[in-house]
């Protein structure tokens, strides 16, 4: 085996290339070249199409730093990402714990599947479904008024809380999934040992369970935070006029204002922020694997 392994390794790339080339060529054409092109475009005054004059410029980045609007919106998006991530931890972590440590056998499998199922269904449609629940005269409004003796008006639609609710609903299964995977790997005897040594439930949670499940928490947080910071469809549908975020401004540059170079610069700044966040999260993740 060892000798054959060495042979395989020498001729490895030559044999592997025909199998690898199509997939990686496709990724190059549709992902890596576009990302590079975006960086390139972000330094241009105009699109080099249809004979328009263009030149290199730093103006698009200057626009970001000189107009406080963009920075404000980026901060608003980062705050949105942070809030949604926190809510997902608060809601998702206990659920993951119950799934991993309380439920057993078939009911655990079935409920786990039920929790992560919506996450793979259409995100747009799920956001849309909240519009029906949250609007005035919607289901929540009608239901609460039917139960409560006094008249209240629930009109959460087109507000910041509506955006938060929709996003948490979209992303909480991620957190349950990643935390469940790490919680499940914790040996029960560690928890029992802690308890028999006189630790209270809370101490076991703080000293044993949470530290050991940290990689799952970080992975979940990164997987949620990154797309939420770049979200635009959810704030548009549920936020209405209050739903202007960094993502919606980028969208505008491409579909409404048609200032593509500025859009490219804004996208690239977002990409840089995202990469920094992933870089910060990766040591914790690597320790886990």
């Amino acid at each position: 085996m060892a000798v054959q392994g060495a042979v395989a390794s020498r001729s490895g790339l030559r044999s592997a290339l025909p199998l690898l080339a199509p997939a990686y060529l496709w990724l190059t054409v549709a992902i890596f070249l576009p990302l590079s092109a975006m960086v390139f475009f972000s330094f241009m005054t105009d699109l080099p199409l249809s004979g328009k004059a263009w030149a290199f410029t730093l103006g698009n980045y200057a626009a970001f730093f000189s107009q406080s609007l963009y920075l404000t919106l980026l901060l608003a998006s980062l705050r949105l990402g942070l809030e949604v991530t926190l809510w997902c931890i608060v809601i998702g972590y206990p659920a993951a714990y119950v799934l991993a440590k309380v439920l057993k056998g078939r009911s655990r499998e079935a409920i786990f599947l039920l929790v992560i199922l919506p996450f793979w269904s259409n995100g747009l449609v799920r956001i849309f479904s909240w519009a029906m629940v949250l609007r005035e005269g919607g289901i929540l409004d009608t239901a609460l008024n039917a139960v409560l003796p006094f008249k209240i008006n629930i009109d959460l639609m087109y507000s910041y809380p509506a955006v938060i609710i929709g996003l948490v609903h979209s992303y909480v299964p991620y957190m349950v999934l990643t935390c469940y995977l790490t919680l499940q790997a914790i040996d029960d005897s560690l928890i029992e040992a802690g308890r028999s040594l006189g630790a209270t439930r809370l101490q076991v949670l703080k000293r044993v369970i949470i530290p050991l499940s940290m990689p799952g928490l970080v992975a979940g947080a990164a997987l949620i935070f990154v797309p939420v910071v770049g979200s635009f469809m959810e704030p548009r549908i549920l936020g209405g006029r209050t739903g202007t975020f960094y993502g919606t401004v980028i969208e505008d540059q491409f579909v409404a204002v048609f200032n593509w170079p500025l859009g490219a610069a804004l996208s690239f700044i977002l990409l840089a922020v995202v990469l920094v966040i992933l870089a910060i999260a990766s040591p914790v993740l690597r320790r886990a694997t």
Binding site: A30, P34, A37, M38, P227, V229, G247, S267
Partner: peptide, 15 residues
């Protein structure tokens, strides 16, 4: 890992 907003706009530009 990269948000689809970034990938999507990059594809639009490149294509």
């Amino acid at each position: 890992a990269i948000p689809w907003l970034i990938t999507g706009t990059a594809m639009l530009i490149f294509f």
